[in-house]
Design a protein around this nucleic acid. Structure first.
Lengths: 379, 379
DNA sequence: CTGAAAGCGCTTACAG
DNA sequence: CTGAAAGCGCTTACAG
């Protein structure tokens, strides 16, 4: 499709050599603002496709017969400071050459980018993927792009990413389910714009987007209680995050308030990072030697799935023998887990809130917490 | 924790003003290589945290009493070209100041970055999230970072992102399930390094990572056939991608080869982007006025989930009344969808293959296709 | 209304 | 072994 131009200069052309490619006089269809060494490619001789080299401000300026300063202003919408003819001519050439500002040059000069880093543990978790999707959409609508970093819930990876992102001159950080780490504390002390999502800042303080996890646990307790259930169970991961602890804590506290004794609320935990497996293992411990409780609270849907598998294997019927309440309300529940009541977390709304928080931080406002409303979805 | 220094200069300091902060003589604990205007912050007076400003090469060089060129070389591991003492002194100061190279400056100068753009439709889809997670991990291990762009399967968004990514001077593109678009064709003609995943380049050609979709469909057919099934059904989205078409095509072709007549293989389609809803709607059309087929092939697990919901609602038992085969083998199947046989796609291995492909492209090799093995997981 | 010039942080031939 | 200098692409006071 594209015509191929054979170029074979012995040396680099001097700076600012500009090659323009015309279809007809007056209709420029491509430009190189410099030639560069072209390595051998697939055994062919040195060659270059027209237009392969991005067009720079200098090319546009040369074409238009104005200075780069003028082009820069016009490209940035500062059209009042140039004559109407100049503006039009430049805009025409910008369009013809398909000029797009190089954000790297701009970032270096302005000392600010339109890039935000998002650190998330295991994207594999549908809840994390939902947050990522929502944040990405919100950022795009505000003209930002997102570098996604999967920390695998590891402090060392979180630190590495924080360092690398700083090198990339990102404009802000979104840390989903942070873990305590050196670089994170340093970043916070430095006053970097950073929004915590899901779990709070392990060192306390900072901007936060999430739900009222204690309240979510209480709501789960109330729901089961209202169903007349008398024997309760709750399972959780040994290495619980603040979010998990709050959910479980709220659940148990509420049952105590309702007058339940300790033995009416059985608890079990299991180690591990995969909530699926933790749910399975913890459920095993919970029912070890006992029957299943009438009502089981799992601080995440994935844990509920883990428990469900054990129920299947042991021929316990869910929800007939044991009502299960999860948290997250995975989108798939409505389709394939009709046995699971779950606390819906409005992940789809997280993106907008996270953006709000970032913009507040950029405006120099004091960090705040944004708690979004959750809803119990009864199935 | 961090000490606060009140700075109130009437004007900017001249370039290269350097403020170093010592705890004891000889032990530098922070540095500003320039002061900048500090806006009012929360009503407090102008102030700055020590170390807030990133340390530049110039700062390190000044501290070490050498040129930036020398520091640059050492930081980049070119230690043979400096005396051992110099290297040691510089490295010590780099460590003390916590210097990290600014990748923006480096990118501008080298005209290459360590950033790769990944364009994906709906991250909401667990299969897409799995690919993103896998690619992210592979890129990180090779020292790259990933900008994630959610195109929502829309050509206009895909184009916008391709343009913005070019502005960001990304080093390569990974396009999952591409759609035909202007900027994509332009990017391909330009010779940009771009790897297609899942679906092929709509214009043909290019580097590709995926599975043999026709074969996957054939395997599904063979599985159901071997179970003695005689009435088959298949559902698919009206706006099918090449991947979907190939899966369905393989399925039907194989059944024809086995001697099945057209009426023994019922087909139904439904419009939409959400495979969950497409699956539900298409299943409705499939069984409209008929009984369910004995075996149903769905070109994605999500479509199978959609069909499952209809089965639940209409009291059809899966798999007793109808065996369902999906594609993707969602991780959750093993836990909560034990009724679903599915073609497992090794998404976890995609990342490494995608990286291979990118590196080939960077090395100037001719683009190729990488087909990964799939497996039928029978449940 | 427009442009020359400095500079963002870095790299890299080139000269010594 | 080391440094001065040019330059990546852009922006922005400043001067005219």
């Amino acid at each position: 499709m594209m015509p191929i131009l054979h170029l074979d200069f012995g040396k680099r052309l001097p700076k600012l050599s500009i090659i323009l490619w015309y279809k007809h006089p007056g209709e420029c269809i491509g430009a190189l603002d410099r030639t560069r060494e072209c390595g051998e490619q697939g055994g062919m001789n040195k060659q270059k496709l027209i237009g392969q080299e991005p067009v720079s401000l200098a090319t546009v300026a040369a074409q238009a017969g104005v200075s780069v300063a003028t082009v820069s202003r016009i490209v940035n919408g500062e059209t009042r400071r140039a004559s109407a003819e100049t503006v039009e001519r430049v805009q025409k050439i910008v369009a013809a050459l398909g000029y797009r500002p190089n954000h790297v040059g701009r970032t270096l000069r302005r000392r600010e980018s339109r890039v935000v880093a998002m650190l998330s543990p295991n994207l594999d978790n549908p809840a994390m993927a939902a947050i990522a999707a929502s944040v990405e959409t919100a950022l795009r609508s505000a003209g930002y792009v997102m570098i996604l970093c999967d920390t695998h819930d590891r402090a060392d990876l979180q630190d590495e990413y924080l360092h690398v992102m700083r090198s990339q001159v990102v404009q802000g950080y979104i840390v989903v389910n942070p873990v305590r780490s050196e670089a994170l504390s340093a970043s916070v002390s430095r006053g970097d714009p950073i929004v915590f999502v899901g779990r709070r800042n392990p060192d306390g303080g900072g901007a936060f987007v999430g739900i009222d996890n204690r309240r979510a646990g209480r709501d789960a307790a109330d729901h089961l209680w209202a169903r007349g259930i008398e024997e309760f169970g709750v399972i959780y991961p040994t290495q619980g995050s603040s979010a998990t602890r709050d959910r479980v804590g709220g659940f148990i506290t509420r049952l105590e308030e309702l007058g339940l004794s300790d033995e009416a609320v059985r608890q079990a935990e299991a180690p591990g990072l995969s909530h699926l497996e933790v749910g399975y293992a913890a459920a095993q411990r919970l029912v070890n030697g006992h029957s299943w409780p009438q009502g089981l609270f799992c601080p995440s849907d994935l844990m509920a799935y883990g428990a469900y598998r054990l129920a299947l294997e042991t021929k316990v019927r869910i929800p007939e023998d044991c009502r299960v309440v999860g948290v997250d309300d995975n989108k798939l529940n409505a389709w394939i887990a009709p046995w699971l009541t779950s606390v819906h977390i409005p992940y789809a709304d997280f993106g907008a809130k996270v953006l709000d928080q970032l913009q507040s931080l950029w405006a120099g406002e004091y960090p705040s917490e944004q708690l979004l409303p959750h809803t119990l979805i009864v199935r």
